[in-house]
Amino acid sequence: MTNPRLLPLFATIAIFLVACVICYIQFPFMASTRVLGNLLTDNAYLGIVAVGMTIVILSGGIDLSVGSVIAFSGVFIAVLLRDTNLHPMIVFALLLIVTTAFGAAMGGLIHVLAMPAFIVTLAGMFLARGAAYMLTIDSVPIDDPFFEMLQKAYYLMPGKGRLTLIGVVMLITVLVGMIVAHRTRFGASVFAIGGGEQTAKLMGVKVAQTTVGIYAFSGFMAGLSGIVFSIYTGSGYPLATVGTELTAIAAVVIGGAILSGGAGYVFGTLIGVLTMGLIQTYIVFDGSLSSWWTKIVIGALLLLFIVLQKGLLRLSVARLSGGTA
């Protein structure tokens, strides 16, 4: 008998495979490494930020600030590269320090004030967006030789698909996220807090440190996502990535994590992101469909997963009362 906690993950993978088959039947040309390469590249920033969001949601929290933080990151990089002579790598390092500290501060507030993460990160969302506007109100192009090199770095897969640097960064991030969530004490503490903060405390989880760590991790991932997004678009724009936090949450839920915390897989989130990307690709291939269909399908998928999770909950409750010894 398999562990029922794996079922949402299996469902996610099954839906992804079904989507792949549908795409292939309609447009056989979609089964190419070019499409795969683009899928990874186009969704790299979303995948990275969704890994951070997965950790947050596993702990039973939420981080609404990440979309704004990505926009802030792009603007921060563009403005610093325009106005100073700093090497992009140093700018990246500075940015990651800032966004990680920002996340840590939100985590600290959530713990110390015992406030819902929703409210604290909502404040963070406005603050980060405002900070981006303070730096500039225009779209600032990035013109830097090192940056151009990053944009053009790719590995040519057989079939002429391009596995870009940012696509690889996303895959590595997912791998790191999987290790952090499932193979470290920090990850175990995250699951424990998601399962019940009081109980976690009784079992010796350092709730304060873990909470700060969770949001710092999410802040770091948002910063990294911002770097990837700036490489992807080649500019910084304070109005970019509005609502990305919600897309990331959707990806996490479609990936099989439970919004109330305590159950889910980072790998599922990757599949969730790819599923959403695949729907978009399908619409592009079709050509006649409005892009709003993406939202409708994502909405339907979200509903499906919420129903699935409720069903699983019932199932495990029923099994318990049946007395599985």
Binding site: R185, A188, F191, A192, G195, G196, T199, M203, V205, G262
Partner: peptide, 20 residues
């Protein structure tokens, strides 16, 4: 029961003292 139902039995038993 003051343990975490969403973790495995092994995780619950070894929590905080996992072999690493």
């Amino acid at each position: 029961v003051n343990l975490l139902p969403n973790l495995t039995v092994a995780q619950n038993l070894c929590f905080g003292r996992e072999p690493r």
